[in-house]
Nucleic acid binder design. Structure first.
Lengths: 217, 217
DNA sequence: AGCAGTTTGTGAAAACATTCACCAGCTGAG
DNA sequence: CTCAGCTGGTGAATGTTTTCACAAACTGCT
């Protein structure tokens, strides 16, 4: 089995999402072609992605929807619940803590931290905001494996270090800065400003060079 | 000039961010090596990325910080301000509308829409939430080129269609679904749940196959 | 049973992205 | 001026990801 690329993993999540919808529609089987159409990619890509993990389809028929969904759930590690801490209870952090979509996919926000005394003690979606200094103590009994960093840039690396020290195994970073963590800690970044800048680039380049193929979405 | 890959554009944003910091520190020149160190990539990558757009450095010296920053600003289209509409004034939409980071990078939130009458009329960061039905009318005089979709999944494609019809040229989509837009409209997606699922995958795979190289951050 | 019509799984090919390796150009010291 | 020490730009090499194309496997019809 080869190493699985980040793009493949993202697509697996997409497939899983589509299968939820398709199952709700009551369809029993789906072909790689139809799965691909709903994602805007090629059928070959779908089959290749899935083939890294096994042979889930039947020739001439396609994939059994509930079965493939269960396989993907297992592959993605969604056949369990994950405990998540959110650090930073500002605009973004509070919105993330309150976001229902996490819970429905198996991610439970079990702790929220902030450094600002004005925010400590407030409730966000049923969870009391704790002082950042309490992170090690809270981590000891709250047992969160994942953490979301939604702090200002200047605090992000320090918070990451504290989370790693507290035993967190994966970090989702919303602060617009590269974080350095030990190799055994998984890290993903979401940088909303960078995405807007990407749009700005696309529109600017189209204007500058009228005859250019557009970058892929 | 070759087509510029999405990864290169993301790195350009990163370089720009680092240059802001470096300029604030008062440094006048920076080498590709030091720029790369702060990003966790190779110096060759930095030079290659920049070389697509011109020769901005001086051999033996490195890059002039203010000059390179100005070049990147122009390349990314940040030497102007962009007008942005936010559709969906729920948790995420409100947080985005209130997020200061957008404004400081040249993105002004000039309109916020929601379908829920309970939200229409409220103020978010100095902007009054308008009914979604008013989108065409508001677009006619608010002149936003970009839009952020922060609606529930089921509304996202319909909203995208309305935005395209209203003349929006770029869309940043937070709804966890693939959107279809005409090729002349730029589209980027941010899917936070998918990123958490990526972490879940990483941790799960590590557990299943102890002797594997980790995916790149 | 045989055949037409599908669709998967997968090596091989093609496209794309990153890294290497080295020449050219620059500074500053002597 | 010359030389040592750096550093950028870039073609070539390497590595990675996507796409192609086709044999194999399945259904349903006659």
């Amino acid at each position: 089995m080869p190493r699985i690329s980040a793009s493949t993993v993202r697509r697996l999540s997409h497939y899983y999402r589509v299968l939820e919808e398709v199952e709700a529609e009551g369809r029993r089987m789906i072909s790689s072609r139809r799965l691909a159409e709903r994602e805007g990619i090629t059928p070959a890509q779908v089959r290749k992605d899935l083939s890294y993990f096994g042979s889930f389809g039947r020739r001439g028929l396609g994939y059994n929807v509930p079965h493939l969904r269960a396989e993907l759930r297992s592959i993605l590690g969604l056949d369990r619940r994950w405990r998540v801490a959110v650090v930073g209870a500002g605009n973004i952090g509070s919105a993330l803590a309150a976001y229902r979509g996490f819970g429905t996919q198996g991610f439970d926000i079990v702790a929220v931290f902030d450094r600002d005394p004005a925010r400590v003690g407030q409730e966000v979606n049923g969870v009391t905001v704790r002082d950042l200094d309490e992170l090690p103590a809270v981590a000891a009994h709250a047992h969160f494996e994942l953490a979301v960093i939604a702090t200002p840039v200047r605090a992000a690396q320090e918070v990451a270090d504290a989370l790693v020290a507290a035993g967190v195994r994966g970090i989702l970073n919303f602060a617009p800065r590269k974080l350095f963590v030990p190799p055994e800690v998984a890290l993903r970044n979401v940088d909303m400003t960078m995405e807007l800048e990407g749009l700005s680039f696309d529109l600017t380049q189209v204007a500058k060079t009228p005859r250019r193929r557009r970058a892929r979405a």
